[in-house]
Design a protein around this nucleic acid. Structure first.
Lengths: 130, 130
DNA sequence: GCTAAATCGGACTCTTTCAGTCCTACTTTG
DNA sequence: CAAAGTAGGACTGAAAGAGTCCGATTTAGC
């Protein structure tokens, strides 16, 4: 469907939220304000933290905050942090092995297409969302 | 996953195949040569025909052929003909109604992003696949 | 030190979408 | 009229996605 997953959508919303604040923010607050499932959002923020674009402080008065400047966080990076695969077709994937490889006649062009899409997603950052 | 569906992938392969020939080609031939399920490909070609980018002739010696020049058939058009929805998020969709609309803070930027992606997909045509 | 408010993280369920199959009907050439 | 095609509905199976549940760990503040 060529659609961003809800995980990425929620991730972008959360990052946008964090970018507007300069103190740590709880998952609860973002989830309530943005009408997103708490449990789901909690997992997403954990993944974003693993990537290193945000940090967390645990315990009471804990929460999440940005580690990087908004303009350093591209949509591509968010996608990579939150999704397993992000190639446009099976044959442009590195991890999967294309079942029709021997007879595949569109591998080259698809690679080019993927590069162009990535370029677009790379150019958009959290800074543009604020 | 931001991935083109198999329907679109097979559709592009079939169109590329047709673009290389100047006579009608049967579904069977394309399916065999490209290792694609016959039944599935048959449905895809029907949809492409409905859109008007290819024509069919029924009966013995029948098959499909291009109605338009390869450079007139963009990837966007193929996607539109073969998929229900193609918006990048729920909130940029026209047919769906975003459940979180009241609190959605990324609608504007997502629309811009979608336009840019569409621009890329619009610029690539079957002519580039040959 | 205890308690409450947080993050951490595994395991699970439910739903929807996608890919693919099966079967029957209609069309047309030879 | 038979064989080779397209036309198309209905169904199945598998996989991914979205969301839930529950328990563990950490830590500020009383």
């Amino acid at each position: 469907m060529l659609r961003l997953s809800k995980r990425v959508e929620y991730g972008l919303i959360a990052l946008q939220y964090l970018a507007k604040r300069d103190v740590v923010v709880t998952v609860r607050e973002i989830a309530d304000e943005s009408a997103i499932s708490y449990d789901l959002l909690a997992k997403i923020l954990q993944d974003l933290k693993r990537d290193g674009m945000i940090y967390s402080s645990q315990g009471v008065r804990g929460g999440y905050g940005l580690m990087l400047a908004p303009q350093q966080i591209s949509v591509t990076r968010v996608i990579d942090a939150l999704e397993e695969e992000s190639s446009i077709t099976e044959c442009t994937s590195e991890s999967e092995c294309c079942t029709r490889e021997a007879v595949c006649t569109i591998k080259g062009p698809m690679h080019k297409l993927q590069e162009q899409v990535e370029q677009v997603l790379n150019a958009v950052t959290i800074a543009q969302l604020i």
